[in-house]
Design a protein around this nucleic acid. Structure first.
Lengths: 205, 205, 205, 205
DNA sequence: AATGAATGAGTATTCATTCAT
DNA sequence: CATGAATGAATACTCATTCAT
């Protein structure tokens, strides 16, 4: 019984294609990836791909969104669920979440955003609104709550929540470029957290 | 027919071309830059450019090298010249040097390395050997000297000098992607230095 | 589940499709018209369209035929019905008929034939046999009858009935290309008729 | 001695290419002609073609211009040179010129303009300004001069110089579509001239 | 009969690189 | 040395047509 030449799976196609695209972009970067290769990977014809995504650029944006949105939702859920002290949350669920990032597809996205982002300003805008801004806000809230309930002193960290995510971004890039020489990213992330919390608590470390 | 008074000399050509290439890459990225445009910018014909650089890739590597080497030399000189305590050096010359980076062409290079690096493993190798590795070693030495002469406690920072350069890398990328929303990079870099030194000194911050 | 009150009947489908195709071809020309657009206009799926017309080319031919045949029948009826002198017929019903052409869908067909005709020799053949040849013959008969009954002198027009339709073809094209600058097509057609009849009658004009 | 792979003939290239394009367009029409085929015909690479003509559309426009301009100049020269009566000029040089058109590349252009013109409004504009408008004006002047010096009566022809060119356009198209069945175009053109002059002179014909 | 998801051949355009001059 | 005319491989995107449902 020969395989049918066509399968009709309207529902699944977009996801199958963005998955394939993600894999392809990860390997060769956006520019060097041929639309045809993405199609092949997805087990689909070029024409069908173009039925779902009007251009290669649209595909790229869809990839970013389809991979980022679930992680955002995941993080939101974690934040909403917690009833811990700020420190406990930062050292616990937050750190756990953040340590998964350097090994996840998110790291590919970071690279893609750096390489291709500036050519897609609307994507950057979306990324800022939906990811970066929200993430930084959540951290700010967390720190401020800590200050309010006496866990932390008010410090410059209140205005620089960036310091919490710095090691993640750095790790992703460092690992990408110098795979072999990359230090233990978990340790780097944890250490940075130690530094920050010590600072906010005014403790000796 | 009078000799032009300031004739370009052969020796300057390669530098003129890499300068032009750097400018072009900065504006549009490597892939989107046409060799012809580089030639035009340099006031040179395409043919001549190919006389100096066998391929576009070679040109790219030459650009990286020609911009990185002087900064390394600069930093080496600073290090060699100093006779300060580790803390004084870190807070003084090192911080000064490092704070110039996010606004310098080096930031362009960082972006180029991220976008194009993995396609040029030998370039990455060179970059590691000549820049990253040397920089990290220098920092390690600095920290260890501080430990030896009682300035600092031995801490995890001894093995993670990366923590000193993290904010630079982060700033470069953040500024590149979200120009408008980027916080004061100097402050970020300084704060990180405060955190690290406090940690190493075992002080309250 | 109530029957829709006015259900499209199968028999109407082909006509509905050729109408839609004509409209589409008129707007964008044959090559630039997508089969899918025709289907949409006709309120039909692509698949169904292909059930009635094996190829886009077949569809084109069907369009031509479906629009030309009624006009031919119309003209035939007019000719058969008349009992006038040749001059009266030419100045009356013939002129009336012919003046409607530059504003009618026929003008679209003329353009389509010019643009696409040579790619469809069999269509041209059919067109010659059923339209052009018949029309020219009818005109020849008319002129000869006029000569026989003393209305006209025998002239070169007997062999060149083309002179009667020339202004129609010219008007259609001129109007199509230079809409705004097109002179009054009725006047042009009438003038040509005046010239020809004067010539055939040997009158001063 | 092998043919050199490159020939350097900057000067001649554009004309060689437009000639090749004209031939290709004549055979298959604009849409069906592949840029690559034009290049091949011209003995040139696709890349070089694109060096001279930015797009296929530009090429098309260049073709039109390169073939029309010489004919316009030719006609202008004829008009400027003549010192005849209007009738003599119309029956002589004008008729001679006009009778060459149906067999010349101009006829190809007319077809191309009809098939493709409306997609290139600026080309139509140019064509109107440089060809049609000028031609019609010249004819009007000629007729009016004839009226002024008593050769002709003032008639509707004064405002419809189109009647002079009608048979040319008609002939071109008729010949193109129905090659085999096309009547003697010279005769058609001459007869129309006879009709018009008789009309303007108020003669019996 | 009817649908529209799926196919894949076909094409304009770009750009790194070469080489006659 | 120096030029820039010339090359041609590479690639995003379209659309007539097919076929599983």
């Amino acid at each position: 019984m020969p395989e049918p030449r066509f399968r009709r799976r309207k529902e699944d196609r977009p996801q199958e294609i963005t998955d394939a695209a993600m894999a392809a972009f990860a390997e060769k970067g956006y520019a060097a990836t041929k639309v045809e290769d993405v199609a092949k990977r997805a087990g689909v014809s070029k024409g069908l791909l173009y039925l779902y995504f009007k251009t290669k650029e649209e595909l790229f944006k869809a990839v970013v969104r389809s991979f980022v949105v679930p992680r955002i939702d995941e993080l939101s859920a974690i934040i909403d669920a917690h009833e811990m002290s700020s420190e406990a949350f930062l050292r616990g669920p937050f750190l756990d979440f953040v340590k998964t990032l350097p090994g996840s597809p998110i790291s590919i996205l970071v690279r893609l955003m750096i390489a291709e982002g500036p050519k897609h300003p609307d994507l950057l805008e979306w990324y800022w609104d939906n990811v970066v801004s929200r993430g930084l806000s959540a951290l700010t809230v967390l720190v401020e709550r800590g200050v309010e309930n006496g866990e932390f002193r008010p410090t410059v960290v209140n205005e620089l929540p960036h310091l919490f995510v710095m090691p993640v971004v750095f790790s992703v890039i460092f690992k990408y470029l110098f795979e072999k020489r990359c230090p233990d990213t978990d340790k780097m992330i944890e250490t940075q957290m130690d530094l920050l919390i010590a600072h906010m608590k005014g403790d000796k470390t």
